[in-house]
Structures are given as C-alpha cells and as structure tokens.
Amino acid sequence: MEKFRTPLSRVRLWGSAKAGSGLFVAQRLTAIALVPISLWFVASVIFFIVKADHAALVAWLQSSWNAEILILLILAMFYHGYLGVHEVVEDYVHHEVVKAITLVSMKFVIIAITVASVLAVLRIALGT
C-alpha cells in the first residue's frame, strides 16, 4: 500500500520540514566537538586554573593553543546550550507570546555573551 503513495502524500500532515534538520545536525556536531574540548577544559581547570593567580592565567592563555581551544569551546558550547534550551522552551512553554519573547530574548543574550566572551579571551591572549 505504502509504495503506491506519492512522496507528497506520505509527508503531508506530519509536520514541518523546513530548517529543523539543520539545527538537529548542528546540535549533534557541536556535541561531538564538545566531547574532547570540554574534557580539555575540565583538565585545565583541575591541573592549572585552580591554583593559578591572574598573572599565571594570562601567561597560560598567551601560550600555545590554549586561547584558540578556549574560543572553540565558547563557540561550540554556547551554541549547543542555546539549541538545547531553545528545544526545552519550545516543548514546555505553551503561551505563544511568552514563548516568542523568550526565544527572541535568548537569541539576543546568547549572541551578546558569545561576543563578550570571545572578546575577553582575545583581550587576554593579545595582551590588550
């Protein structure tokens, strides 16, 4: 029976097929990236940051690849968190206006703190 149906009739009434799959893929790609990066960050905190003063932290961020990995962490983790909370809000906030305001505010906030955090790392790494 199924094979006689047109592709359109198979997908009709089963919901949106717009940009959702792109976000689905982005959530998983950031997840894969965050496995090594977040473990690197936890190890850095344990082995270095807990006993570092400000000067030691600055020196650490100015040496080798630390600033670069930290910026990758910010980009991947903040985007991953944004996508996840977006999904939770979509699932549990049912008031359309509240939902819209929450989702738009989240977008502004995540972009603002991402820019501020990357800039903070760059300022330390470049010594300005």
């Binding site: 932290l57 903040f78 968190g81 996840g84 909370v85 501020a116 955090s117 903070a120 300022r123 330390i124």
Partner: peptide, 18 residues
Amino acid sequence: VFLSVGILVLAYWLIAAA
C-alpha cells in the same frame, strides 16, 4: 538546562579575567 546557566557563569568568569 543547568549547564546552560553555567555558561553565563563561564562568560562572567572570562570577562572578569579580561
């Protein structure tokens, strides 16, 4: 969701360090 709150603290910590 709890870790996403931690993102805000991580951002605060980085900005404080800068």
